[in-house]
Nucleic acid binder design. Structure first.
Length: 321
DNA sequence: AGATGTCAAGCGGAT
DNA sequence: ATCCGCTTGACATCT
């Protein structure tokens, strides 16, 4: 069985898990708290929406807790948001939805610069702790290998060295190929050294195949999950933009190409498209959610699905469109 | 009111 | 040597 998902926000609901603020406003603790609560509230809305439509995975925005790893973060977020996180995590588990996160280009544990490595580790630990508080064992922390810094072997060695003792991070970590520097076979090798799984991204792979056909890339990466459900990334090239830019939707032949390469094997497929959940619709089995009944207490009224339960009270909160 | 450019962070690659 | 884009939203400043 193939499960599908999308990242960070739902355009139909107008819901986002990625609200942030400028660093200069970080000292305003009340404002940060409010943003976090809005992010978590929208996460719950998205999870329910997903469950109704048979969407089985979802990627959290990196800024669910904005600047969580920054030294100037104004309060103890682990303590203050523990209950809300536990609640959101429980919802995800009860709906059978697997969560993930994908820290961005600034996270570079293989960098030759110690301060970059330190900041990177801080960010990765934040993600691991967040997953811990959510209570989602099967959540995945997706990361690229970063730069080559003129010497790939040394960079890969630094990367492994920086993470080898990070047990909390390694529990969730999975390494993904990128479109320029690190191809699937290289990523799979480094992942193997760390004892973590590897993810093949179809668009990156097309641009940086490392000598492998897509099927061979999957032959290499799927077994690294050792019984856990494997993850794969799917996206299509935006024809207007430069190579690597994500299109709004998935081209049918890219989807069929992935299915053919999977050849019946199970996978969780993260669909990376500007159109977010709209890009999933043509790929989902007709009729939406198959047999999820946990959501049965939802008012099934035809028409306007207003968020029924209480909104979190926060200062300066505004109505969501 | 709307449009524009900049914001914590790192890289590779184009120019 | 310098600049761009990578994701996205926030927000200060402009018109």
């Amino acid at each position: 069985m193939i499960r599908l998902g999308y990242p960070t926000q739902n355009l139909t609901l107008g819901a986002s898990t990625n609200r942030s603020l400028r660093l200069g406003n970080l000292p305003d603790a009340a404002r940060v708290r409010s943003l976090v609560r809005q992010n978590l509230w929208d996460l719950c809305r998205i999870l329910r929406w997903n469950a109704r439509r048979g969407v089985g995975i979802f990627r959290l925005g990196q800024s669910v807790i904005p600047f969580a790893s920054h030294p100037n973060f104004p309060y103890d977020w682990e303590k203050e948001h523990a209950a809300e996180l536990r609640e959101a995590g429980r919802l995800a588990r009860s709906l059978g939805i697997r969560l993930s996160m994908h820290p961005g280009q600034y996270v570079n544990p293989g960098s030759p610069r110690p301060e970059v490595v330190e900041r990177s580790l801080a960010e990765l630990r934040y993600v691991a702790r967040l997953f811990g508080l959510l209570g989602c064992e099967d959540a995945v922390l997706v990361l690229h290998l970063g730069g080559a810094h003129g010497d790939r072997r040394k960079s890969a060695r630094r990367f492994v060295g920086a993470l080898a003792q990070e047990r909390g991070v390694l529990r969730h970590l999975a390494l993904e190929n990128d479109e320029r520097v690190w191809s699937v076979p290289e990523v799979a090798r480094v992942a193997g050294e760390l004892g973590v799984p590897a993810i093949a991204d179809t668009l990156h792979h097309a641009l940086n195949p490392g000598g492998l056909a897509l099927r061979e890339a999957l032959d290499l990466t799927l077994p690294t999950w050792r019984g856990r459900r494997p993850k794969v990334h799917l996206s299509s090239q935006d024809p207007e933009k430069q190579p690597g830019a994500h299109a709004r939707l998935i081209r049918r032949e890219d989807w069929l190409g992935l299915l053919e390469a999977l050849d019946g094997r199970e996978a969780d497929v993260m669909v990376e498209a500007k159109g977010k959940e709209l890009a999933l619709e043509p790929l989902l089995p007709p009729g939406g959610a198959p047999e999820r009944r946990e959501d049965a207490r939802k008012p099934a009224a035809g028409g306007d699905p207003r968020p029924a339960p209480e909104r979190p009270q926060h200062r300066g909160g505004r109505a969501l469109g």
